[in-house]
Design a protein around this nucleic acid. Structure first.
Lengths: 237, 237
DNA sequence: TAGATTGTTAATCGATTAACAATC
DNA sequence: TAGATTGTTAATCGATTAACAATC
């Protein structure tokens, strides 16, 4: 997490709108998704107990999380699903669509381009960038339309023209830092990094990292631990 | 994180080998990767300060993390890169390769299959599974060889034959829970879930979830916050 | 011995949890 | 009013940090 973020101004009684804990923010998207699904299914009201169960958290944690946003429930009744969905969405900034530029149109990049989950949750891929001359100029279908892959040299113009706010790095590790520098130079301050490298960026730029192999390695650790104990009846005799 | 994990047996003076904090475990893969890169670059010794900088953490945190594994450094000198890399790898269970089965060979699934990062970090894709009849029976090239996509009905046999320990779910949301049930029935106890759903699994099964849209939403939140303050000179006058 | 750097301690900070008063 | 459920409080737990004694 960014070192530059601190809880300043703790004097206020209720921290509504400010100083929402990072752990809470990371869970809000889950709440939004589950609430919208419930809403689509025709559910109008839900208790913290039921909503928490659907979200895979404890009711206490859910209520605590929501209390940071304000008071959107009714004691003795529960939460209005649509009403709460709206307010959590708004808090996350999902009322307007966000423009995303994807840099690196290899295997992963192309999978991301055609990932339905982006469009359905408020993100629009507005630009594709690659360094490879063979790929630049190619057309790729995104959602409804088509996008032409741009050269990395044209990134700043692309960002200015499309108003993109988020950059996704899906290049090989070697290229990632250079791409990050270009993104920052182009005015992007939110980066999602799939390359297995620690990026250096100036203060004020937010980087989130997804490393698929890291996730597998954490699973492997637990798997190994599980394997240490069992079969206790056959102690190498 | 799994509710079933607790720090039991705190009586020991040093918790080497047991009770490593979850936060530490999540960082170990980063240390391993950076150490291996350094080792490949011919670096033989490194201080906690330099290694921490390369890993994007503080030196204090790095030393604290490593202290949970044992005492692999030399005071006044630093850490032997290869030696430390080996021991952290071993702790994570990366000395033997792990078999991975990927369920859902759509866009994301195919990107995962051809992701170099798996093989290079100790994971081998040993099975591909899909529900769609058109895809079952198809051959897909993985690393060196080829794999034939199997039907979901044959999952248990596939797992038994290949000895796979980890299941990756890259299906649409609707199919994910059923796939998880099949994986558990087939004996898999480590699942990496890319579908945007909260999976229900029995105790003892470890699930990690990667939700690409969630990462973007967290970025959007911060981006929105950033946008609230600026341009203070032009207060809608 | 003097300088460097680890491994550990203790203090701080943030997140989770359980319990309950407020209130529909 | 009685029953239900939120929003808040206070206690607990775990993670981070800074400082330093141990020791190469």
């Amino acid at each position: 997490m960014s070192l530059s973020r601190r809880n300043v101004g703790k004097t206020r009684t209720r921290d509504v709108g400010r100083g929402i804990p990072d752990a809470t923010i990371a869970r809000l998207p889950v709440y939004v998704r589950v609430l919208k699904t419930m809403s689509d299914d025709g559910v109008t009201t839900v208790s913290s107990e039921d909503l928490a169960a659907s979200c895979g958290v404890s009711p206490a944690k859910l209520r605590k999380d929501l209390s940071h946003l304000g008071s959107y429930g009714t004691r003795g009744v529960g939460y209005d699903v649509a009403f709460l969905a709206y307010h959590v969405s708004r808090e996350l900034g999902l009322t307007k669509p966000w423009g995303v530029v994807i840099i690196g149109v290899g295997n992963l990049g192309q999978a991301l381009v055609s990932y339905r989950g982006f469009a359905t949750r408020g993100f629009e891929v507005v630009g594709l960038v690659d360094a490879h001359p063979d790929v630049v100029g190619t057309s790729i279908s995104v959602g409804g339309g088509e996008l032409t892959v741009t050269s990395l040299d044209d990134l700043a113009r692309l960002v200015a023209r499309t108003g993109a706010q988020i950059g996704v790095i899906s290049t090989p590790a070697e290229a990632a830092q250079r791409v990050a520098d270009s993104l920052v130079a182009a005015g992007i301050r939110s980066i999602l990094n799939f390359a297995p490298v620690v990026l250096c960026v100036p203060d004020g730029v937010e980087v989130r990292k997804v490393d698929l192999a890291v996730e597998l390695q954490i699973l492997a650790f637990h798997e190994q631990r599980r394997g240490e104990k069992p079969l206790p009846e056959v102690m190498h005799a």
